[in-house]
């Protein structure tokens, strides 16, 4: 029995676990033009996203997190997608991601999302969606010039 693979229906798909175990872009940036701290206090998820910007587009992306596997994996996957994106492109991607999480868009339509499409199983786990959303909210905060973000309701 392979104990390291989660069954179908699990939010911990292989891509999610791979990104959570060995995250990409997990470091600090030497040159940081924008940054924000995301915090879900009730959950205990903390993440900091730093960006280097070139003409309003993301040239470099890095994060550091003390957070659950879903937040870390989403932050890692996000870094793979958003280089070259401006605010509007990130917003458009965030809308797609939200639709994926609440099930209003079929998974195939999530091609733009890349590995982030692996979060489709969160449709069945509404209590955990805020974990996967936190990196997006933090990235958007950084691009808006806000210092803080959260995906927990007040």
């Amino acid at each position: 029995m392979n104990e390291t693979r989660a069954e179908a229906g699990s939010p911990y798909r292989a891509q999610v676990l791979a990104h959570a175990r060995t995250p990409l872009h997990q470091h600090a940036l030497r040159r940081c033009d924008a940054a924000a701290d995301g915090r879900n206090a009730l959950c205990g998820d903390n993440i900091r996203i730093e960006l280097t910007l070139r003409e309003g587009r993301i040239a470099d992306y890095a994060f550091r997190a003390e957070a659950c596997a879903l937040t870390v994996a989403a932050a890692s996957m996000l870094g793979e997608r958003v280089r070259g994106f401006d605010l509007r492109a990130v917003q458009a991607l965030a809308v797609q991601f939200d639709q994926l999480l609440d099930g209003s868009v079929a998974v195939e339509a999530g091609a733009e999302l890349g590995d982030l499409a692996a979060f489709a199983e969160l449709v069945a786990f509404p209590a955990r969606r805020k974990c996967a959303r936190l990196p997006f909210a933090t990235l958007l905060a950084a691009l808006h010039g806000d210092a803080h973000a959260s995906t927990e309701e007040a």
């Binding site: 699990s10 911990y12 959950c43 659950c68």
Partner: peptide
């Protein structure tokens, strides 16, 4: 190395209901 909410979700998938959080 494991976050409490990840643990609780994985336990839930096995049918084991525990609480995670504060």
């Amino acid at each position: 190395g494991a976050h409490a909410h990840d643990l609780a979700t994985l336990l839930d998938l096995e049918g084991v209901a525990v609480r995670s959080g504060h």
